[in-house]
Design a protein around this nucleic acid. Structure first.
Lengths: 107, 107
DNA sequence: TTCGTACTACCAAATATATCGTACAATGGA
DNA sequence: TCCATTGTACGATATATTTGGTAGTACGAA
């Protein structure tokens, strides 16, 4: 069973979390995980980048502590680490998602 | 009288605001402006970078819409655009400042 | 008009980020 | 065992960011 490294709550850095969420592709991933129930394989996201670039963005999110990634067969299941982030930086994630929703609504 | 360009509220982009706040030097500037009363010249910040680098960071903050910069003689007075940001992306700035305070407290 | 202050513009460099293609590894199923 | 699926590792490249130095501008004061 392959496992992937995740930062603990207190290892999460604001620099890294904000940088992770500053990228539109990564913010899209986080928002979709927030909207949806349960977890989702990387391949289900239909991102406007290549597979290897997608891997890079998922890894960036995981290493920042925004998502949790766990192997399930050959797939990786992704979940938003909402509880952890809310504990670490209260209100941050919700504010970002709200902001994203606002910006989206104005096309 | 020299003037500097600022984005209007609806020209503010989440990408740009988050990227601006992801940098520790710039976040320091924003936090200090939030804590202090009134406005402050660039030179009063004692940043750990050269003068020209500081100029770059102030410009980045201004172009993102995070701060307002206005000439007053040869000085530039900086103010946080809190009202504008709160109107555009409610709760975002406060969440970032709260997160910064948390992270600071744990040295 | 001369000087000092405060800041910018421009150039150059170092570093970081985002991107993709190709080759590969791990798993589950036929 | 062989194959398809899912995602990674690595290398290359393009672009962006961060940085500082130098020269210069705008302003106020003497």
């Amino acid at each position: 069973m392959r496992t992937l490294a995740h930062p603990s709550r207190d290892e999460m850095r604001l620099d890294t979390v904000l940088a992770a969420l500053a990228d539109p592709v990564r913010r899209t991933v986080a928002c979709k995980l927030n909207d949806a129930f349960g977890d989702h394989a990387c391949a289900t996201f239909e991102l406007p980048v290549s597979k290897s670039t997608a891997t890079y963005h998922f890894r960036t999110l995981r290493e920042a502590g925004v998502i949790r990634q766990e192997y399930e067969g050959t797939k990786i299941m992704n979940t938003l680490r909402k509880d952890d982030l809310d504990a670490r930086f209260p209100g941050l994630l919700d504010a970002v998602f709200a902001a994203q929703a606002i910006e989206r609504a104005e096309t």
